[in-house]
C-alpha cells in the first residue's frame, strides 16, 4: 500500500514537471515532423515579451487570438504559415502591432526599431525558405 502511494506521488511529480516544460515550450515549437517553423531565441524573447499575451490560443483577446496563435504556428499548413508570417512582417513594419491602445496602457510593449528589424527579418527569411521566393 505504501509503495503504491509512493509510486503515485512520483508519477504526480513527474506529471507536473512534464506539464511545466510543455508550457515553457509554447513559443519555441518543436513539433516532430515540422522543421519549417524555426524560432531563434532572440525572436522568441521578443514574441514572449510583446506579442504572446494576446496571440495565443488561451488569450482573452478574441481578435488577437483569431488572427494569430503563436503556440499553434508549427501546426499550420504551408500556405497558412506563409500568410501569417507575411502578416507579422507587415504589421510590425508598418507599426500596426502592438496596437496603439495597448502601448498607451503598457508602454513597455512598444517594439524598438531593432526588434522590428529582427522580427521582420525572421519572418521574411522563413518565408523565402518555405516558399522558395
Amino acid at each position: 500500500m505504501k509503495k503504491i502511494i509512493l509510486l503515485s506521488a512520483m508519477l504526480f511529480t513527474a506529471a507536473i514537471f512534464i506539464s511545466i516544460s510543455a508550457t515553457e515550450d509554447i513559443v519555441n515549437n518543436t513539433i516532430p515532423g515540422n522543421e519549417k517553423y524555426v524560432v531563434p531565441e532572440k525572436v522568441q524573447a521578443i514574441i514572449e515579451n510583446k506579442c504572446f499575451d494576446c496571440h495565443n490560443s488561451n488569450s482573452k483577446n478574441m481578435k488577437g487570438k483569431m488572427k494569430l496563435k503563436f503556440d499553434k504556428m508549427a501546426e499550420l499548413k504551408t500556405h497558412k504559415l506563409i500568410g501569417k508570417l507575411d502578416n507579422i512582417s507587415e504589421a510590425v513594419t508598418e507599426g500596426d502591432m502592438p496596437p496603439k491602445k495597448a502601448i498607451k496602457k503598457y508602454p513597455d510593449l512598444k517594439l524598438t526599431a531593432e526588434e522590428i528589424k529582427t522580427l521582420s527579418a525572421w519572418s521574411n527569411g522563413l518565408i523565402s525558405k518555405i516558399a522558395g521566393e
Binding site: H79, K80, I82, G83, K84, D86, N87, A131, E133
Partner: peptide, 19 residues
C-alpha cells in the same frame, strides 16, 4: 501580387469573413 502576398490576403479573407 506574388504568391506570398496572395497567401497573406487569402488568409485574411478567410479569417475576416468567417469571423
Amino acid at each position: 501580387l506574388s504568391k506570398v502576398k496572395k497567401a497573406k490576403y487569402l488568409d485574411n479573407i478567410t479569417e475576416e469573413v468567417s469571423e
